[in-house]
Design a protein around this nucleic acid. Sequence first.
DNA 1: CGGGCTATGGACTAACTAGTCCGTTATATA
DNA 2: TATATAACGGACTAGTTAGTCCATAGCCCG
Lengths: 223, 223
Amino acid sequence: MSASDVERAPSARRERNAVQTRREILAAATREFADRGYDGARVDQIAAATRTAKRMIYYYFGSKEQLYIEVLERAYTAIRDAEQSIDVEHLDPIAAIRRLAELTFDHHEAHPDFIRLVSIENIHRAEHLRRSERLTSLNTPAIELIATILERGRATGAFTAEVDAVDLHMMISAFCVFRIANQHTFGSLFGRDLTSPGLRNHYRTMLGDMVVAYLARGRPTRP
Amino acid sequence: MSASDVERAPSARRERNAVQTRREILAAATREFADRGYDGARVDQIAAATRTAKRMIYYYFGSKEQLYIEVLERAYTAIRDAEQSIDVEHLDPIAAIRRLAELTFDHHEAHPDFIRLVSIENIHRAEHLRRSERLTSLNTPAIELIATILERGRATGAFTAEVDAVDLHMMISAFCVFRIANQHTFGSLFGRDLTSPGLRNHYRTMLGDMVVAYLARGRPTRP
DNA sequence: CGGGCTATGGACTAACTAGTCCGTTATATA
DNA sequence: TATATAACGGACTAGTTAGTCCATAGCCCG
């Protein structure tokens, strides 16, 4: 995130800065692809949104598809980095899993572009994601974290259910992703804006309640 | 589904049948749009998949966009009709809500094209759905059904939580939709095929457990 | 049994869009 | 300062694609 290497004295005419130009294209491309989908996105539009010309997109990325893949890679890397920095080791299992769910909720809410890119990539049956070595080899900190919490919860007896970490991650993601990804059709059909600020805390709590109730199910609620 | 009205003796040369031609175009268009998205879909490809020519698409539907809207309308009408025929009145509240969840699960599994169309429409921020009077005025039997079950559950004391019908529908949909809609990216990243036949029952049960655990949990929340 | 309306076909077009050609300019290094 | 090379720009192109023109063929009704 440091911009020190891109801050040079601007020359009167052309400024030359490979890293920044590249970055600017990626930023514009992320917006365009997330906004309109892969086929709907226009390379000319991406170029117009940068300080540079279309030629540069092909200079740096080679093709529309390769540009899209790098957009995907950057977006996924960002969320993995965020997951990596989650620290819930000091919390008891129930509080830890609730906190993790809330962090996922918050991250998804803060990055609707990422959610849109994931939806778009699923429409394409993940063909680009599958082709990216960087992404298929990316480890998934969230799963390991969930696995650790689940183990602790089972040890203390807080969780009565045998649950798989990947499944629990799916459950949490499903709730968070649906709320953002399907907000438009859901809103039109049921007259409820799932992303309304006034309902944010309601749904955040609902998610935590759901996950905790599922993990502790069967157990009588104790005082 | 009856084809009695379209079965005529095929003439040697051109056959004329407005209803069937129209229907054939809609079927091909549903496949093409669900497969490639709105922008990715090709009108020529839709025409090629029918027995008729591209000209007919414009004759009957006027534009690619109007064709897409009618595809959406047909898909949504189908799922609403299915919801309408659900009967769980004879079951106790807990069994009823579990059954409803399972029916949603089954329907989504059986209609991946519908799920894909919904994803695609959300990428377009529901602009087409919003423009369709037929869809915005469509009533939602699922919500009313859930509301009835919730009322009964609260009356009998089976459900300890105050839950809104729309929210519960969201929770159920989120699980079912995510499993289908995000199967490709999820599969690539976590190495698990959410739609594998061997896991079908596992996830179906998990959904029911989740919903029931949530409804019967100790602590209520309100919207 | 013929006129008129509905349905149909296929070639055509105008506009768009990913990608390229070729020349130019800045900067690092010798 | 010379020059090699990386960075850049804009006009151009080839291919594609939604949508149309014009002509024709089947069908219904009198």
